[in-house]
C-alpha cells in the first residue's frame, strides 16, 4: 500500500466538509486529457457524497510535454489568494483544450479577480515553490500517472472511470459508517 506523503494539511486546497469520513486526493495535470475526463466524474462524486467527502487537489504537472500545465497550476494558486481556487480549477478543466497564457488572465477577469494582484501572484516564487512541492509530494507518494487518487491517505490503484471510483468510495463509506 502506497501512502500519501505528506498527509493533507491546511496548506492544501480542499473542498467540502473538513471532517468528512472520506478524504479524496487527486494528483492532476490541467493539460492531461485523462484528468479532463476525470473532472466531471469527480464533480459527480462530490455531488452524490456531499458532506461525506472532502476533496483535495494536488498539482502534478508534466511540464516538458504539457507546456500550459504549470502556468495553469499557478493560476489556480494565484486565484486561491483571492478565494477562487475551485472556480479557477473548474474553468481551466472546462476549457482544457484551448489553454494558453492569455486564457488564464481572461479566466481571472471572468471570475472577477483583482487583475493586478492576480498577475503579480502568477509570478510569485512562493506559489511556484508550492506547485513544485505538490509535484515532489506526488513523486514521494508513488504517483505514476495522472490522475492518481488517494483515499484516506492510501493510493487507489483501481479504475476510476465511469462509476468505478464512486462505487468504491460508497463501499469505503459503508465500512466506515458501520464502525
Amino acid at each position: 500500500m502506497t501512502q500519501l506523503i505528506p498527509p493533507v494539511s491546511i496548506i492544501d486546497n480542499s473542498y467540502g466538509n473538513p471532517a468528512a469520513l472520506i478524504e479524496l486526493v487527486e494528483f492532476g495535470d490541467y493539460e492531461c486529457p485523462y484528468c479532463g475526463r476525470a473532472y466531471p466524474i469527480v464533480k459527480n462524486i462530490q455531488k452524490i457524497l456531499g458532506s461525506d467527502l472532502k476533496f483535495v487537489f494536488r498539482n502534478f504537472p508534466l511540464r516538458k510535454i504539457h507546456p500550459n500545465a504549470f502556468p495553469a497550476a499557478l493560476a489556480t494558486e494565484a486565484a486561491a489568494r483571492q478565494n477562487r481556487f475551485w472556480e479557477m480549477h473548474d474553468i481551466i478543466f472546462e476549457n482544457q483544450r484551448s489553454l494558453d497564457a492569455d486564457k488564464f488572465i481572461q479566466f481571472g477577469v471572468i471570475l472577477g479577480l483583482d487583475p493586478d494582484r492576480f498577475k503579480t501572484d502568477m509570478q510569485d516564487q512562493v506559489l511556484m515553490a508550492k506547485v513544485s512541492k505538490d509535484f515532489e509530494s506526488g513523486l514521494r507518494s508513488g504517483v505514476n500517472r495522472t490522475p492518481t487518487f488517494f483515499i484516506n491517505g492510501i493510493k487507489y490503484e483501481d479504475h476510476w472511470s465511469d462509476y468505478h471510483l464512486l462505487e468504491h468510495l460508497r463501499s469505503v463509506l459503508g465500512e466506515l459508517s458501520v464502525k
Binding site: 492531461c32 516538458k64 509535484f135 513523486l139 505514476n144 495522472t146
Partner: peptide, 16 residues
C-alpha cells in the same frame, strides 16, 4: 501513453 509514461515522469525529475 503520455500521462502514465515512465520516461516522461523521469524527464520531469532532472533536479531531483
Amino acid at each position: 501513453p503520455v500521462c502514465g509514461d515512465q520516461m516522461s515522469l523521469y524527464n520531469e525529475m532532472g533536479k531531483y
